[in-house]
Design a protein around this nucleic acid. Structure first.
Lengths: 109, 109
DNA sequence: CCAGAAAACTATGAAATGTCAAGCGCTTTG
DNA sequence: CAAAGCGCTTGACATTTCATAGTTTTCTGG
C-alpha cells in the first residue's frame, strides 16, 4: 500500500477474482477471437456479463478490442502485453489444479 | 477435461475466482489465525461470507480448521499443504500487479 | 432465392450471491 | 462490573449474474 491506500497486490487479486476474468484471459491466451467465439471458449458466461468484463479489461489495458466492421458487427479481442503476462498466473493455477483438484464427488452419483 | 467432463484447470479457476478466496489464502500465508483476526487481515469481508468461504476451503482441503476450545470459542485456521502451494499463484499475481497496476483514477477526486 | 444461422451485443426480469447490522453465549480486561 | 473481544449465525437488503429474447446485417445450404 502506498500512502493513498493503494495496494497493487490487493487490487490485482480483486481484479482476478472477478467472475470470468481468469477464464477470459485463459481463453484469449489461445489466440484472439470474436465475442461469441470467446463466449463459447469460456463456457457458460452470459453475454451481458462478458460484455461488461471485457469493457473493464479493456479499460485496464489487459485486453484490446478491435472493431473490424460496424455493420455487420465484427470484432476481435486480444490480450495486450500486460494481458499476455498473466500467463504466468494461469500456469501457476493450472499446475496447482492438476496436482490438487480431483473430480468433485457429484452428489447426483 | 477427462471423459467425465471434469477439467482441473477450469475448476481451479472457478475456485480461485470466488470472491475473497485469494485474499483469504494470501492472509493465511502470513500464518495461522482466528476468525476475526482473519477477517481483519483480509479487510472488508463480512462474517457471513467469510464463514461460508472457509467452510468450502476446508471441504476442499485447502484450509484446516482447529477448534481449540468450545466455550469460549477459539478457533485457528491454517493452510494445508495444498493451500500453501497456492503461494506460487499469489506470487505470480503479486509480481504482475506490481508491474502493471497503477493507482486507479478515483472518480471522486 | 429464401430460410436459417451467425455475428456482436443490449434489454429485461428473475434468481443467485454477497453485504449489512444486529445479536448470542461466554471470557478476559479495565 | 461494565465493556470489549471471540466466533460465529440470522434475516433483511443490495448487488450481480442469469436465461431468454430481440436487433441488424451478411453468409450459407437446399
Amino acid at each position: 500500500m502506498d500512502e493513498s491506500g493503494f495496494c497493487p497486490i490487493y487490487e490485482a487479486i480483486n481484479l482476478l477474482q472477478e467472475k470470468w476474468v481468469l477464464h477470459i484471459v485463459r481463453a484469449l491466451l489461445g489466440g484472439e477471437m470474436g465475442f461469441n467465439q470467446l463466449a463459447r471458449a469460456v463456457g457458460g458466461v452470459n453475454p451481458a456479463t462478458l460484455s461488461q468484463r471485457l469493457e473493464r479489461l479493456v479499460a485496464l489495458g489487459v485486453v484490446e478490442k478491435e472493431v473490424l466492421q460496424v455493420m455487420p458487427p465484427r470484432t476481435r479481442y486480444r490480450l495486450t502485453r500486460a494481458g499476455r503476462e498473466l500467463e504466468t498466473v494461469i500456469e501457476a493455477i493450472e499446475a496447482w489444479g492438476k496436482k490438487y483438484l480431483k473430480p468433485a464427488p457429484d452428489p447426483r452419483t
